[in-house]
């Protein structure tokens, strides 16, 4: 990953405002941002390790450990709640065998909260490996469970 960081700064520069784009790029490349990379990121942008650590841990999107092979992000916000989101959240946890905010022990699937996908009139909504799914009901959960079993 050291070369990846060097290549990125060669293209985009070493300004501090590049930190979020660089973190996004690392996560897109490696799936997560390992703590072991923090010193290299800090050196590349001339920041302190504490500064980089602070930014990584501030934002919900940045992961410090590898995610599940599949990620189901289920919306917990008000508009989805108004359409039965809480019941679907409980059903999804049962159906996928993993609690909200956790990765299943076998590493196959993670169920994560998201606060609004902007599909607020057709909830409850989810992102399944980045693909938007609306009007989630029991049948949709079955399809999602089959999809993430692969």
């Amino acid at each position: 990953m050291e070369e990846f960081i060097a290549g990125w700064t060669a293209r985009h520069g070493t300004g501090r405002d590049g930190l979020l784009p660089l973190l996004h790029a690392i996560q897109a490349e490696a799936g997560h941002i390992d703590d072991a990379l923090v010193p290299a990121i800090a050196r590349a942008l001339n920041l302190s390790r504490a500064d980089v650590h602070g930014v990584i841990t501030f934002y919900h999107d940045f992961r410090r450990t590898a995610p599940g092979r599949h990620v189901v992000k289920l919306c917990r916000a008000e508009s989805c709640q108004a359409r039965g989101g809480a019941a679907m959240e409980a059903a999804a946890a049962r159906r996928l065998g993993v609690a909200m905010g956790e990765t299943r022990a076998d590493g196959q699937v993670a169920l994560e909260p998201v606060y609004c996908l902007g599909l607020c009139a057709i909830g409850p909504n989810a992102l399944v490996d980045g693909r938007p799914v609306a009007r989630i009901d029991a049948a949709a959960l079955d399809r999602i469970a089959a999809e993430v079993a692969a």
Binding site: A77, E78, Y115, C116, G118, L119, C120
Partner: peptide, 11 residues
């Protein structure tokens, strides 16, 4: 950064 639930006009 349209984070409010129930809004999607920006998107």
């Amino acid at each position: 950064d349209e984070g409010d639930s129930g809004t999607f006009a920006d998107r």
